[in-house]
Design a protein around this nucleic acid. Structure first.
Length: 199
DNA sequence: CGTGTTTGACCGGCGC
DNA sequence: GCGCCGGTCAAACACG
């Protein structure tokens, strides 16, 4: 895992190619191989010891906390981007307060991950020339937060950090269950239901 | 008119 | 104790 710290992006194209062509086969169990502790870039900057903390949990954290499984894959493929997934679970984070970080190659800052987010803040941070955006899940009662910022070293990459666990299913999952007979309809519905994410 | 975004102010944690 | 910094709030604004 430390090796990823030193070489955060050894060969993203290979990874992505599979992701785009055939999203379903690579489940988060496999993605977890790419997951890392702590937020990408921050631990790298400071060589922070927190990056060596034990994950101590399965990829279910990722699926439940960040996408309810699979929906992020569709988002990644729609945006035609390279994806590198990393996970962090800070030692200060307790129990169900999951934290997951993505590093994604995309022109778009906001990924369509199947959930509806409401932006509540924007802040320029010291480590990065690019501002960091703060989002909350707009679903009532759901307390999941999301941070989005561009990689300070390579602006073509977007770092997305999810915090918390959704108390509901992704709208896209619902659509998928309802519309599984026609994938085209899925994309149509998802796109129309999440237009705010692309503004 | 309802919903979401923008943006400056405010607050708390942390390091010195 | 003080200052810096990240995160959040909330009023104003924009848009459909």
């Amino acid at each position: 895992m430390d090796c990823l710290d030193e070489d955060p992006n050894p060969n993203p194209n290979h990874f992505v190619e599979k992701y785009i062509v055939d999203p379903p086969p690579m489940d988060f169990d496999e993605l977890s191989n790419y997951l890392m502790l702590d937020e990408y870039g921050f631990s790298r900057d400071h060589q922070d010891s927190s990056s060596s903390q034990s994950v101590g949990s399965s990829s279910q954290n990722f699926a439940g906390g960040a996408g309810s499984g699979g929906s992020s894959g569709g988002a990644a493929s729609r945006n035609n981007m390279n994806v590198e997934v990393r996970r962090n679970k800070l030692n200060k984070v307790e129990g169900d307060n999951h934290r997951v970080a993505f590093r994604t190659k995309s022109e778009l800052e906001v990924m369509d991950d199947g959930f509806k987010w409401r932006k509540y803040g924007k802040k320029s941070v010291k480590n990065s020339p690019n501002p960091r955006n703060y989002y909350k899940c707009s679903n009532g009662g759901c307390n999941v937060k999301k941070r989005v910022e561009r990689d300070r070293d390579d602006a073509s990459y977007v770092i997305t950090t999810y915090e918390g666990v959704h108390t509901h299913e992704s709208p896209s999952v619902v659509y998928y269950n309802q519309m599984h007979a026609d994938p085209n309809n899925i994309w149509t519905l998802r796109a129309s239901s999440q237009s705010s994410a692309s503004s």
